[in-house]
Simulated assay, not measured.
Amino acid sequence: MAEMSYLGYGPGAADIFFQVVDRRYHKGRPILFTTNKPLRQWGRVLYDPELARAIIDSTLHQGEYIKLSGSSYRLRGSKLDLDQPAPAEQLQTTLPSA
């Protein structure tokens, strides 16, 4: 399993990543990606749009793309909802009186 975009990747990472994906593709081995970035932004994440496209192409050739949306499963039941903007009064800082 590989996570795309939480960690920064430097130039050259796409070369290594492509090799891993390509080997797994040709051996018929599964690979799973999780990401919070749309596929069109993978080129920016990997610093190489062409290799990012090749990685996506190989992965989706016999794979599936499943997009999940909605509130965080981990935050269910909590009052905090990261998908909703905070009310303005919660964003204001109150300074103590002098």
Rank of each mutant, 00 (worst) to 15 (best):
K37S: 13
F33G: 08
G70K: 03
I16F: 06
S58F: 15
S69C: 04
D15I: 08
Y65P: 02
E64K: 10
W42F: 11
I31Y: 01
I56L: 06
W42N: 02
P11V: 10
I56S: 01
D15A: 08
D57H: 09
F18P: 00
R74N: 07
N36T: 01
E3H: 13
S71P: 07
V45I: 15
V45T: 05
R29T: 14
L46D: 00
H26T: 12
S78T: 11
A14M: 01
R40E: 15
Q19D: 15
H61W: 05
Y6G: 09
S5T: 12
D81N: 14
L46A: 03
S72V: 03
V45K: 00
V20Q: 12
Y47E: 11
I55N: 03
L60P: 14
G43K: 07
G70C: 05
V21G: 03
R53M: 07
D81S: 07
L75T: 12
S71R: 14
E3P: 02
H26S: 15
S69W: 04
P38V: 08
Y6T: 10
L7Y: 13
V21L: 09
D57E: 12
P11T: 13
K37H: 14
V20R: 10
Q62S: 11
A2V: 10
P11F: 09
Q41P: 05
D48Y: 04
Y73S: 09
L75Q: 08
M4Q: 09
R23W: 11
Y65C: 08
Y25K: 00
L46Q: 04
H61T: 09
G28N: 05
I55M: 15
R24N: 03
E50K: 08
F17E: 04
K67F: 07
A54V: 06
V21A: 14
D22C: 05
M1P: 04
G77M: 05
D15F: 01
P38Q: 10
D81F: 10
P30R: 10
G8D: 12
R53G: 06
H61N: 10
T59Y: 02
P49H: 00
G10D: 11
G28V: 01
P38S: 12
R29D: 09
